[in-house]
Design a protein around this nucleic acid. Sequence first.
DNA 1: ATATAATTAGAATATATGTTCTATAACATG
DNA 2: CATGTTATAGAACATATATTCTAATTATAT
Lengths: 192, 192
Amino acid sequence: MGRPAHISNAQLIAAAARVAARTGPARATVAKIAREAKVPTGSVYHRVPSRAALMAEVWLEAAERFTTPFLEQLAAAESLEAAIEAALVTPRLSREDPAAGVVLFVHRRDEFLAGAPEESRARAARLTSALQQCLGQAARRLLPKDARGRERLTIALVGVPYGAVRVFLPQAVPPPELDPVIVAAARAALGA
Amino acid sequence: MGRPAHISNAQLIAAAARVAARTGPARATVAKIAREAKVPTGSVYHRVPSRAALMAEVWLEAAERFTTPFLEQLAAAESLEAAIEAALVTPRLSREDPAAGVVLFVHRRDEFLAGAPEESRARAARLTSALQQCLGQAARRLLPKDARGRERLTIALVGVPYGAVRVFLPQAVPPPELDPVIVAAARAALGA
DNA sequence: ATATAATTAGAATATATGTTCTATAACATG
DNA sequence: CATGTTATAGAACATATATTCTAATTATAT
């Protein structure tokens, strides 16, 4: 089968994620990523077609780690209180996988997707629209009287926890005491 | 006095702010900034020593527009309710000066300060520490029982409004209806 | 008018960095 | 053990863009 690779594709993405988390995607050069992954720069191009595609992959992987539990919690929620639990996905991910947390909550989606191949963009668009759709359905179910229900739910379940963890990231990990504060603030934002 | 300049120094900074708001500071090239300001690229270097120094200036100007009213409101606050008003500086700035809002609340301080001259960094450090000091004093005054008062106040008055406006910026301007939501969420975050 | 200063104007240069290329090494299979 | 395949290894190349440079322009002051 030929010479074995020093690292796996997933390890390359993980190394790129660490570099991007530290420096931001714009300053994550191929040289730095290769050094972090302990492979020569040329080897990077045996795995991915371009730096832009790799950065997109980094974002997509982090975004999926967030979206999966968030959508699961929110889609199943039959009460506002249950929906509010989804707000805790943000601090939990930041603790469990700080690099993914920093990628998602410190840097911006567009920085990672700039110049990315069409396929990566399409995947990113699907993730984003799945999130919005789920928020819309939950709003119709749980805030039927509120004309701007989806907007309000987005503020409470996305905006509030995002802002809360940003007080800590990237220097520190959000402490456990943050979670009840997020819940209280999200509940208040929903007017509940 | 020599040939008159096409634009003032302030106009160059404003043009740089618009470009940086659109593309992010990393992709704000000197060529783009010069085009936006309608001056040749070389002229930029008659005003500022480097692109990095210009980006730092953009951030510092935006940061001062935020810090001044925020500190004023918070320093004068003799009650938690008065302090909570400071949380509204964030959405107000985003409406009154969207470019400054995007610079401060969409992009990151470090992106603007990367490679900046020492003097700019020192100014930025002073702004940041003035903010932290004021938050600390307010916490001791208004939340004397809370051992982590400053942290909590930061979450409520900085993190919550930041996350809330981020739901809208940079695509849209935060609507006026957002303000009572921010106040409610900030109040809840303070446990009041 | 003429000299001087400050700027415009944009070409030239330097540098950083993404990408490709050539050679070599390590593994599997017949 | 020869051959084919895949990866390493890092140098070479291409490109984008920050910065500098030379010349031309337009104001003020004497």
